[in-house]
Amino acid sequence: MSVTRSGPAITADSRTVAPVPGRAARVMTRPPVVAAGQGLSAPAAIIRHAVLLITGVLILVPFVWMVSLSLKPPGEIFRASFSFFPQQWYAVQNYTRALTEAPLPQYMLNGFVVCAVILIVQILVCAPAAYALAKLEFKGRHLLFGLVLIGLLIPHQVLALPLFILGYQFGILNTYAALVFPFVVSPFGIFLFRQFFKAIPDDIVHAARLDGLSELAIVWRIMVPMALPAVIAFSIFSVVSHWNDLFWPLIAVRDENLMPPSLGIMAFKNEEAGNDYGPLMAASTLIVLPLAVAFIAAQRWFIEGLTTGAIK
């Protein structure tokens, strides 16, 4: 009896697991959209799609414009009529200038190093903290979590001055460390991980303790792998915000060799380009590109739940 029962369950599972991940994600994302349309009457569906379309266009237009400008010669950029494709292709010149006239690869390397270090340290700090807040019983737990929530509410800009002074006292201004240290503890990361860890049943933690795992081993071997969707969502959030961050790098570093991409672009605009928007837009496109690629690659993790099967 048990064999016949288990049969369909296994085939059903293997059907969803077997295909290439990327394709699976695409297959899985499509049906809900169709279903949403089907469930509504025709006018409602049209209105809904119109709203979605307009919002999508509003978000995409600046991006499309940037790519379009990066392909055009200076003469076409300020022309009154708009066309996506240029009459005269100027992409090679623009992108060559973007890559040669400013140390764009250096900026991107800086951005990569800073973002990677920030992300690694943030996860190293946030996961154990979130585990303690989610699963351990101790006095003052609620107070501490309240402080995390308050931390979530304080805008980064408010802290800029104290952090600048702190960096000065440590003598780390104008170094990579200056770019990293304000972001070591992320209240958002702690909050997000805590919410995910809380959803993991206590029995799993108990089983792990009986299996001989220490509390830290539970964090790294059980909780973090089980909360992988949260880790990836947080990683995207963290990398995007620090890759694009202009405010703090502007305060913390002056050396061009340490500048992350967005600050570098600003410097590039001031010193080199002037009103020459073609290369500027080319540089911007190049800087956005890694993010777009990374985001599309990681997208499937949002969809794929990892906790299936822990609990019947």
């Binding site: 049943p201 029995d203 799993i204 108990h206 089983a207 792990a208 303790r209 009986l210 299996d211 001989g212 795992l213 059980i222 792998p225 089980m226 992988l228 990892l306 906790t307 299936t308 099967g309 822990a310 609990i311 019947k312």
Partner: peptide, 20 residues
């Protein structure tokens, strides 16, 4: 003594298997 030092093993109602 901590759970791991007690030489006991437990089967949970939810099984508590590690899904990953």
């Amino acid at each position: 003594i901590r759970p791991k030092g007690r030489d006991v093993a437990m089967v949970f109602q939810s099984y508590a298997l590690y899904p990953h």
